[in-house]
Computed example of a mutant assay.
Amino acid sequence: MADAVTADALKRTPFHDIHRELGAKLVPFAGYEMPVQYPTGITAEHKAVRASCGVFDVSHMGEFIVRGVQAIEFVNHVTTNDVAKLEIGQVHYSTILNERGTIEDDCLVYRFADRVMMVVNGSNKDKDLAHVQRYAERFAVTVDDRTDDIALLAVQGPDAEAILQPLTKTDLSAIKYYWFTEGEMAGIPAVVSRTGYTGEDGFELYFDAANARPMWDALMATGRITPCGLGSRDSLRLEMGMALYGNDIDDTTTPLEAGLGWLVKMGKGDFVGRDALERQKAAGIPRRLVGFTSEERVFPRHGYPVFYENAPSGVVCSGTLSPSLGIPIGTCYLPTAAAKEGTAFELEIRGKRVGATVVKPPFYKHASHK
């Protein structure tokens, strides 16, 4: 009975019925019932994205629309990157910090002519909304949570542009990496952005949730796009060394520790968490997130203990056996002095210590993004 209640409490994306029809394995994720894989399997889905094209339902992601004369100033205050430097039609990656300087979430920021859109992780959406709303009172803005109204598909792979172009009058070749346009896809009004979480070229499509099935059907009618679940999304992003909230970053880590210092623009003026980061820089950053591999054929799972010079150094943050490379890959935090390529340390896997070596991500070097 408890399981039934839990399942009933999960939200469903606009594509939920389609996932069921396709025989997807559905699991709880970020408060939603989401497809982790389809009958083809995680490895086949992963390789389809690397070689051709796959589509991910990421409608669980949160979308906040910020409007008002101080929209730019407000988003600049609650995120670390410099929103004022964005041109209309441009996107950037950023972090949302608390006053301690640790990461409430990572996000994308879209600058439109008349508004700003923040795209946040589904698992953090309610927390993020409450967090940014606390600061909104100081600015002439409104923050509108549009998550339930917007469907979001990520079409990823080296063939994405060629496959999608016949479905739209929008010139996809004119959209640069981390830029977007307001156009249409399959005759459906959509924000089309050239971003992604796989390292491959591709597009994210934001559109009215009421159009979920016609959009999906149009994409599938090409016969060239593989439905992909959360499992392959995770292995694809890890091969690129891209952070996952809850694994590699969370509200106990700062962007300086996580290798995301490039998202922190100290020169832009005051922002939430700035003072704490200044203090950490002055005191010295105690640890850093690193990538690693091992010569042993092991599967380094999240949570496995890590040891450097025989002393505990946290746990494996993310880990897998890379489908593209056939080797173990993962991330963990090491003391700053050890966080350089070639450093040897150990993982504990089922009670046995296994050697590992720090390598610089991305692990997969042949991705197609433009």
Rank of each mutant, 00 (worst) to 15 (best):
residue 235 S to K: 08
residue 239 E to K: 02
residue 357 T to R: 12
residue 52 S to F: 12
residue 129 L to N: 07
residue 147 T to I: 02
residue 193 S to E: 14
residue 190 A to V: 03
residue 307 F to M: 05
residue 121 N to P: 00
residue 285 I to N: 07
residue 335 P to M: 11
residue 253 T to G: 03
residue 109 V to Y: 09
residue 168 T to S: 15
residue 43 T to I: 15
residue 17 D to N: 14
residue 312 P to E: 15
residue 209 A to D: 10
residue 183 G to Q: 12
residue 178 Y to H: 07
residue 134 R to A: 13
residue 311 A to D: 07
residue 89 G to V: 08
residue 83 V to C: 10
residue 297 R to M: 13
residue 294 S to N: 09
residue 133 Q to F: 02
residue 171 D to L: 08
residue 197 Y to R: 02
residue 50 R to I: 15
residue 102 T to E: 03
residue 98 N to T: 00
residue 272 V to Y: 11
residue 337 A to M: 05
residue 152 L to C: 08
residue 335 P to G: 09
residue 318 S to W: 01
residue 5 V to D: 15
residue 359 V to Y: 05
residue 53 C to V: 07
residue 31 G to H: 09
residue 278 E to P: 00
residue 316 V to K: 03
residue 160 A to L: 11
residue 9 A to G: 04
residue 324 S to E: 10
residue 125 K to C: 10
residue 232 S to R: 00
residue 339 A to W: 10
residue 254 T to K: 09
residue 347 L to R: 01
residue 270 D to Q: 14
residue 182 E to V: 13
residue 179 W to G: 06
residue 245 Y to D: 02
residue 140 A to S: 13
residue 320 T to G: 00
residue 33 E to W: 12
residue 103 I to N: 01
residue 336 T to M: 09
residue 26 L to D: 03
residue 316 V to H: 03
residue 182 E to K: 14
residue 132 V to N: 09
residue 273 G to R: 05
residue 244 L to Y: 08
residue 237 R to Q: 05
residue 114 D to M: 06
residue 327 I to S: 04
residue 114 D to E: 15
residue 138 R to E: 12
residue 10 L to H: 09
residue 306 V to I: 11
residue 25 K to L: 15
residue 161 E to K: 14
residue 206 Y to S: 08
residue 19 H to W: 08
residue 363 F to R: 06
residue 189 P to H: 09
residue 23 G to R: 01
residue 83 V to Y: 06
residue 346 E to C: 07
residue 122 G to H: 03
residue 314 G to P: 03
residue 173 S to G: 12
